[in-house]
Amino acid sequence: MGSLLASRAAVWDAFTTTLFLAVTAGVLALLVGTLLAAMRVSPYAPLRTVATVYTEFLRNTPLTIVFFFFVFVTPSMGFTFAYKVAAVIALTCYTSAFVAEAVRSGINSVAVGQAEAARSLGMSFGQNLAIVVLPQAFRTAIPPLISVLIALVKNTSVAGAFSVLELFALSKRLTNAHSSDVIAILVGIALCYLVICIPLGRLAAALERKAAFAR
């Protein structure tokens, strides 16, 4: 534990890096994933196809390969990103596929009559989705969405293998330097993840209570 305390400045830096990756990629993935879910239910077949292919492709590709793509492949195509940026892009692309599926399951849980009523009042597809369907879909999608976000927090550790000094990379560095203190260091790092993930779970519970409404 001593070595962890001695390098608390480095731990703090790594912690904020992990938090930065999780929050940035989380917000972007929620936006992109919602857009993908909207495309999946749109009346335009090409949009549905694009969203389906994207979701199936990214959901079924190991995250490490997605990272690999944005760190090593895109530069050869003329797009070079800073490591942190590449990490945010990779995490966003990967996580948005899972967000899309969670939101889509929420959309499917909204009674058909809700959308029919909206259409019969003259609402466009976009209005129907934004005003009537999505607000209700999110309520059912909160638990799976929070699971996706918790997975994202832990997935940020993959960035450690791609030159981003976040918690996992730091833990490797510290355990190499203080081999007698391995257990304490790993427990300490694990606690840092808990500090992010447990409040997320609590947030989910609070949101669910708040969003609970009778149908």
Binding site: A111, G113, Q114, E116, L121, M123, V132, P135, A214
Partner: peptide
Amino acid sequence: ASGPGLARLRAEVGMVFQSFNLFAH
């Protein structure tokens, strides 16, 4: 068949459903 023209027309035709379909939220 679809699009804004259909939406405009639907805006002029009221519909009441068996299951009410009020917006629950």
